[in-house]
Amino acid sequence: MMMDLPLAQELAVLTARLADLLLTRESAAEAVQSLAQAAMEAVPHASGGGATLIDERGRETSTGATDEVVLEADRLQYDVGQGPCLSAWAEERTQVITDIATETRWPLWTQPAAVIGLRSAMSTPLTAGGTTIGAMKVYSNTPGTFTERDARLLEMLARPAAVMLANVQARDAAERASQRMSQAIADRDAIRMATGIMMEREHLDPEEALSRIMSLSRLEKRALRDIAQEIVAGRPVL
């Protein structure tokens, strides 16, 4: 079914805003927080919004929320292992709750969610490249808030959002790998320099010098690189 023109225009505006919000963020955590705000602003009458990145085991890795109530609602889902967000991720389809007070699904979640004032909810999966990486959701303190049109809009907004988030995640992963490699090179160079210093200072061969540094590391229960850096900085070794 073709979406109506006003919805198409609204989606275009929201997607452009998403691109500005997500692609300029330095980390996935910041991008998820921005997406939470965008979700709430996109759906009329939503009192709060959220977004969550979930790993392949169903564990939360990063969460964004517009307020403490949304954050608590999401925390409850991961504590009890059930709820609309987790089901949207696992079943790869939108979950809508018309009235949390009478909803029979996810009883371990709906009861405490009602206590904190939530009455309706809607969650849709974030899928990029055939992989569901999380879910975005909106909540309301009024029952029967969300319409079929709201669900369509959230679903269509989730598609570009997921791709953008996946790109931010990939960038984060590449940066972490680069940092680990740089640190590994720095550690190797420090150990090599410390070994050379020990060889000259104590008249040792390379194996003996390295063994001495390793013994200090074990004795002091500290990382080998830390001992090496101290030796390079002039630490006396008895």
Rank of each mutant, 00 (worst) to 15 (best):
R57C: 07
G58Y: 02
G58L: 07
R59D: 13
R59I: 06
T61I: 13
T61D: 12
S62E: 09
S62P: 04
T63E: 07
T63Q: 10
T63P: 05
T63H: 03
T63V: 14
G64V: 12
A65G: 14
A65V: 14
A65D: 09
T66L: 08
D67F: 09
E68Q: 14
V69C: 09
V69L: 07
V69H: 07
V69F: 06
V70W: 05
V70Y: 11
L71N: 15
L71P: 14
E72L: 12
E72G: 12
E72V: 12
A73S: 05
A73W: 00
D74E: 15
D74N: 15
R75H: 13
L76C: 11
L76M: 06
L76W: 03
Q77N: 05
Q77H: 04
Y78F: 13
D79V: 15
D79K: 14
D79R: 15
D79A: 15
D79E: 15
V80N: 06
V80I: 11
G81A: 00
G83C: 05
P84E: 10
C85F: 08
C85K: 04
L86K: 09
S87D: 15
S87P: 05
A88P: 04
A88T: 01
A88L: 03
W89Y: 02
A90M: 12
A90C: 13
A90D: 14
E91M: 01
E91V: 01
E91L: 05
E92M: 14
E92R: 11
E92D: 15
R93P: 01
Q95A: 11
V96E: 14
V96Q: 12
I97M: 02
I97S: 02
T98L: 06
T98G: 02
D99K: 00
I100H: 01
I100N: 01
I100G: 02
A101R: 09
A101Q: 10
A101W: 04
A101K: 10
A101N: 07
T102S: 04
T102N: 08
T102K: 02
T102R: 03
E103Q: 07
E103A: 10
T104K: 06
T104S: 09
T104R: 09
T104Q: 11
R105T: 04
R105C: 06
R105W: 08
R105S: 08
R105I: 11
R105Q: 11
W106C: 02
W106E: 00
P107A: 01
P107F: 03
P107S: 05
L108G: 08
W109T: 00
W109S: 00
T110L: 06
T110S: 11
T110W: 08
T110P: 02
Q111W: 10
Q111M: 12
P112T: 00
P112K: 02
A113L: 12
A113H: 05
A113N: 07
A114L: 01
A114N: 05
V115G: 07
V115S: 08
V115P: 04
V115H: 10
G117Q: 05
L118V: 11
L118T: 10
L118N: 08
S120I: 04
A121C: 13
A121L: 15
M122V: 04
M122K: 04
M122N: 04
M122F: 07
S123N: 05
S123R: 03
S123W: 03
T124C: 10
T124P: 09
L126Y: 03
T127D: 10
A128V: 03
A128I: 00
A128T: 01
G129V: 10
